[in-house]
Amino acid sequence: MLKHTQKSLWSRLFRPIQVVVAQRVQAWITRRMPQAAHQSINYKNIFIMPTRFGASFLFFTLLLFLLGTNYQNNVIILLSYLLVSFFIVVLHHSFFNLSGLRFRAEQSIQGFVASQVYFPLQVSSDKKRFNIGFSFVLAEKSQSPDVVTMAQLPIGHTCIQVPYRLVRRGQYSLPRVLIASEYGFGLFKTWTSLDFAQQVTAFPKPMSYCWADASNKAASQQTTSSIESYHSSGQAGQDEFYQLQSYQTGEPLSRVAWKHVARGQGWLTKHYQQALSAKLHFDFSSLPQGSTEQRLSWLSFAIKDSADKQLGFSLTLPNQSFSYDNGREHTLKCLTALAKF
């Protein structure tokens, strides 16, 4: 109880200061490390700090020094100096584990809210590097980001799928990517956060139609019919195996073609496709009653589902409309419109 009040008092006192400091730091970081699609990291944009273990290691070294001094034992003193020196060498070693990495990120990403998307980041390295974690810097501190950790980064180009969980609908710029490592001995945390100037488009979260309500059904006869036709068409479609593609870091393991892996044919993932067609029309205004977000979600579901089943459709929104079409580009256009709505 006491602890709680203390905490609130603490936060009340220091919150404004924290906010100001955070803003300043943010501004400084933006100035120091401007956004760019191609970036390389070096001493200008790498941060390095001892970890808690690093600090305790130094304290422990001091302890050894005291032991050596109290026993007037030069060998122990020499050892404590060696450890201090080792600490400094490891500092450089940890720094060089990140320094010199080059990044390219030319793709924007898009996905549905509440889903995980992967930001493709191409990393080139001139040497082997170890234990580097990639994650997005999230504004909300409460949310812990998903980290993809490369236990070993090979020489040459590597494509890394940095996971990003979409929480907010819309089209906005991607946050900074945090590239961090404690490689070496855990004594130092080396990190940098880079802004690749890429956009993320978060489509509304797809929600299936679940109206058992009869009044709703009556009110929107026209829509229902189109929806029904859509439903029936959807039922006819079976997931059909389409093709195998080579595995990209970050893809779900459930889609990995394990048989191929076991046969030593490399890491492949299965991709599916539906083959069916019907004329569908989705109209925002003729949807059953619901909040805008809800309606968008329904539309999102409809578009996603028909796209999955390779069906053509047209879309009408209050501010714009898309004529009947088919294909990936069309789907993307419609979904983007939903995201921006």
Partner: peptide
């Protein structure tokens, strides 16, 4: 190469 990447829910920095 794929085996080298591991995804963890927690941040890197946590010792726990």
């Amino acid at each position: 190469m794929s085996k080298q990447a591991t995804t963890s829910r927690k941040g890197l920095s946590s010792d726990s």
